[in-house]
Amino acid sequence: MATQDEPSIFADLDDGATEEDVESVNRWERTLRLWRETIGEQWRMLTDDLLVKLAMVTLTFFMAVAIFAPLLAPHGPLTRQYETDAEIIIADWVDPVFIDSESAYILGTTSQGYDILSQLIYGSRAALLVGLLAAVFTAGIGTLVGLTAGYYGGKIDDTLMRIVDFLYGMPLLPTVIILVALLGPSLWNIIFAIIVLQWRSTARVIRSQALSLRERPFVKAAQVAGASDWHIISRHLAPNVLPLSFLYGAFAIAWAILAEAGVSFIGLGDPNRVSWGTMLQSSRAYAALDFGVWWWFVPPGICIGLVVISGFLIGRGYEEITNPELR
């Protein structure tokens, strides 16, 4: 800094009173404004697309259903239903309302006597839990690993990327199945297994971004000014790769829900929880298809399809924002 015998245009400022109080407020306001503007702008571009809007409505609907499941569901998902007259367990199944208008169950019941509508409503909880948790962790771990590998380069990059290569060598569904079989069938293990495999693609893409960003002159300028590595990663690299992390998060929702349904369908789902995948599995186990009980397996299939398609549509819409060449 300036000493007295050196010409400086800042000389008089060093004696002046501080104005830190005013500054800190301004700084927060500026950061807030940046976030509001960026998110606002991207939101506008995102909702410009009708399909994306529909996908968001669908996802919001399922989220609301998942949150208010206990209020919406007429019965417990794993509560056996009894025939109305006698206290007999339903031996077969009950037809849904649109086949037998006398039926007490809107979507009928399963062979075990579970209410299908209630199972469907509670099943949305598992799907969204898996989807959102997997998305957050996939994007988070992938971004962190990618930024570290890309920024530091050299041996760190080599090590991290060989781990990613190793994970790329493992097929998603079979590995999740084996991991769940080893760890035991529970929803948390399924989520864990999905995350372990899914962060690989995010890490790859974020790394390549970080590799090109760290050579950009604004990063060099920060280095010349004496910024620490953490400062550069958090202030200069992370904000510039964040749209990509969001994009991969959005796609991760869909993949995770599909993987969970697949694993549950094979019979490695959480036995104490209802998910759309376990519904499909039990309908297969009771040969619903052979008896033509389509109202048992079609609704969970449609729900899976709707949520997954919504996830992909939002991801695709976001991709167009982050990569303007697609527009």
Partner: peptide
């Protein structure tokens, strides 16, 4: 202001303005 924050220099706003 970034270099000023890195080196903990006072009078941030006034310096940036100048």
């Amino acid at each position: 202001a970034e270099p000023l924050r890195i080196h903990d220099v006072r009078n941030e706003t006034a310096r940036v303005r100048r």
